[in-house]
């Protein structure tokens, strides 16, 4: 079964169009990245998925349940971590998680709550008031809140914004293990290397339109100019190689390769010109470059 189906989803705020006929699916088991610059409509799309916002047109289903008609089943199937950092200052971490379990109809959820707390490193803080947690800790409680009902689909809207590196890593390790256990994961992030590292499929959104939707590997090979970084013993670059020069810095020369087979002829040129090599490195294009390229189209 398909985990999420967006079918021609549109959203107007007054006469502003936030989303335009968005259609795509997320398969079960996917680790899916939703990318796009600020204001692209990522949060709006996720809000429609969670029933926080109503689409102006089109339909959305989660695990086969329509988010409008079958809202109760749809909401049980998905756990959403909202983008904004919010909390209820009246309660402790454990109270917060117990209440959230209760809203999903679950009693006596403490075993699972303890397990989540251990995974996100908040066991010590279980009985601390939400007000007294740091921003990163509050963010982790929000992740826990989205997991109390063990949803098959988990959506994280920029979960690592403002979270320090160490924490980010432990969070991703946890989310990865959830994915390995069969949970479908959707995430939006500004850190493209995160999407590159974690996700298998990627959708790019810009101004409410879907620009790209592909397997990550395909997307990465598409924009595929590779870069070769060489450090030479002397300062010059043979004339024959000048057309390939992409940039030059203290690091050395950066050459753009259309494909890897060019490498051989480059080395030949260098040897013939008597230029000695101190270091050599080939870089793949990263998601960021592809992203920037697509957003500029």
């Amino acid at each position: 079964m398909t985990a999420i189906v967006f079918d021609r989803v549109g959203k107007q705020f007054g006469n502003f169009t936030a989303l335009q006929e968005i259609s795509f699916t997320v398969e079960q088991g996917d680790f899916f990245a939703l990318l796009g610059p600020n204001g692209a409509g990522k949060t709006t799309l996720i809000s429609i998925l969670g029933g926080l916002t109503r689409a102006s047109s089109g339909s959305t289903t989660v695990m086969g349940f329509d988010v409008q008609r079958d809202y109760r089943a749809a909401r049980r199937a998905v756990g959403i971590v909202p983008q904004e950092l919010v909390f209820d200052p009246f309660f402790t971490v454990r109270e917060t998680l117990r209440f959230q379990s209760g809203y999903f109809g679950i009693r006596n959820n403490d075993d699972w709550i303890d397990e989540i707390l251990a995974h996100i490193g908040l066991t010590e803080k279980a009985d601390t008031n939400m007000r007294k947690l740091s921003g990163g800790m509050k963010r982790r409680v929000m992740v826990a809140q989205a997991l109390v009902h063990r949803p098959p689909v988990i959506v994280l809207d920029e979960p690592t914004a403002g979270v320090d590196v160490e924490l980010r890593q432990s969070l991703w390790a946890f989310v990865r293990s959830l994915n390995a256990d069969g949970h479908t994961i959707v995430l939006t992030t500004h850190y493209l290397e995160e999407a590159e590292m974690l996700c298998n499929r990627i959708a790019m959104l810009k101004q409410g339109r879907l620009l790209a939707l592909e397997d990550k590997d395909k997307l990465m090979s598409r924009g595929a100019s590779r870069h070769l970084l060489i450090k030479t013993a002397s300062t010059g670059l043979p004339a024959a190689l000048q057309p390939l020069l992409a940039s030059q810095s203290e690091e050395g020369f950066e050459l753009r390769l259309a494909d890897c087979n060019q490498l051989e002829s480059i080395l030949v040129e260098l040897r013939q010109a008597g230029v000695g090599l101190k270091d050599i490195e080939i870089t793949k294009p990263d998601l960021e470059e592809i992203f920037v390229e697509m957003m500029n189209q």
């Binding site: 969670g50 029933g51 926080l52 809202y71 109760r72 089943a73 909401r75 049980r76 959403i80 909202p82 904004e84 919010v86 909390f87 209820d88 200052p89 209440f99 959230q100 809203y103 999903f104 109809g105 809140q145 989205a146 009902h149």
Partner: peptide, 17 residues
Amino acid sequence: QSKITGNIVFLLLPPLS
């Protein structure tokens, strides 16, 4: 208070009737 602080989302996301 829930609306202004934004924590109303935790009531809007669950399947409460």
